[in-house]
Simulated assay, not measured.
Amino acid sequence: MTHDGSMSPSTASANDPSAIAPVSAWDRYQPWRRTVEVLAWVILFAVNAIAGTLTTVIDIHRFDLDIPHWAPAVWETSSCVTALALAPLLVWYTRKVPFHIDTWRRALALHLLGSVVWSVAHVVGMVTIRKLVYVGLGESYDFGSWGMNLVYEYLKDVRSYTYMVLWIEGYRLLMRRWQGEASVLTTPDDVPEPAVPERPERFLVRKLGKEFLIAASEVEWLQASSNYVNLHLRGRDYPLRTTMAAIETQLDPARFVRVHRSYMVNLDCVGEIEPLESGDARITMHDGSKIPCSRRYRGALRQERRAA
């Protein structure tokens, strides 16, 4: 990134978390993160499928039921495979409908609705798989009364849905704590609040029990993400609990420019602007990151760069 020439090396080191730990455990985890997350889901559902199959087999032998020995494995595997296929949609939905103290009632209502949709999709998917497997084995699968069985399956699925949402949100909370969360450096209690909110010169980053200060001018670009705005600098993102509209009014307009509904850039960190046939543009930052620029903001970006 581009540093302010007036900043001394000692000051930069004091305000730069990455200067203290250039290669942290967080950095080492990033190349493996997607693999670990996918494997965690696969292992979770594989364990559920095995446990469910063994439990059903035990019940069949206990009650001496006339059920083929392969049927429990088909039932449990079809359920878990369908749930695993729906997991990415649930991850996406929890991003769109996050739980926060001020909006938890709305989020709860939307998640109750989401659990119904998820359950119906889960039942339809697993029944389809079972019918296909049964046909392949020369058998016929009968799900029974759809009305009664949908209610029965929902009573089980709503619990699974709840556990998965808690799993997802718990993991995200852990990642935010590990990565570090930013907040605007507040005015001391003994100093009166200004009538007009001042632009923050620094952000406070809390990370695993430690606190760091980062200069606002060092933020390379910002990206809106649900109820957060990620501050990007030196290859790291620090989520700030705010909206893009709110942070836009606080940052220096001579330095930070809105280029997209979800992005702002630091003009000092912009490398190239590539026009696209659609009328939009693609911004290449000094660190190589590609930022979309919509046609709505393209003219303002061009004027600001000339002025700079």
Rank of each mutant, 00 (worst) to 15 (best):
R130D: 01
G144F: 12
D142W: 01
K131V: 09
L137N: 10
G138Y: 13
L132V: 12
W146F: 14
V151S: 13
M148E: 12
Y152I: 02
G138K: 00
Y152H: 13
K156T: 02
V151C: 14
E153V: 09
T128K: 00
V151M: 14
I129C: 05
Y134W: 00
K131S: 15
G147S: 11
S145P: 02
L150P: 01
G138R: 02
D142N: 04
S160W: 15
Y152F: 09
D142E: 04
F143L: 04
Y141F: 13
V158P: 11
V133I: 11
T128C: 14
L137D: 07
L132G: 11
L137T: 04
Y161W: 09
Y161S: 07
G136M: 03
G136I: 02
Y141E: 05
G138T: 06
V135S: 14
W146T: 10
G138Q: 03
V151T: 14
V133F: 10
N149K: 14
M148Y: 04
L132E: 13
K156P: 03
S160I: 10
Y154T: 02
D157S: 15
E153G: 03
R130V: 00
L132K: 08
Y161L: 12
D142M: 01
W146Q: 10
L137V: 06
G138P: 04
G138H: 05
W146H: 06
T128H: 05
S145Q: 06
G138E: 10
V151Y: 08
V158H: 11
R130M: 03
R130H: 03
Y152L: 05
L155C: 15
Y161Q: 08
S145G: 06
R159V: 06
F143V: 01
G144E: 11
L150I: 09
G144Q: 11
E139H: 06
Y161M: 12
M148K: 04
K131L: 02
S145A: 06
V133Q: 05
N149D: 14
V133M: 02
F143W: 04
S160Q: 15
I129D: 05
N149G: 06
G147P: 02
S140K: 03
V158T: 13
E139V: 04
S145H: 05
V133T: 02
S160D: 12
E153Y: 10
L137I: 05
K131N: 12
N149R: 15
Y134H: 06
S140Q: 09
Y154L: 05
K131G: 11
E139W: 02
Y134S: 12
Y134G: 00
K156Q: 07
E139I: 01
V135L: 10
V135I: 03
G138I: 10
R130E: 08
R130N: 11
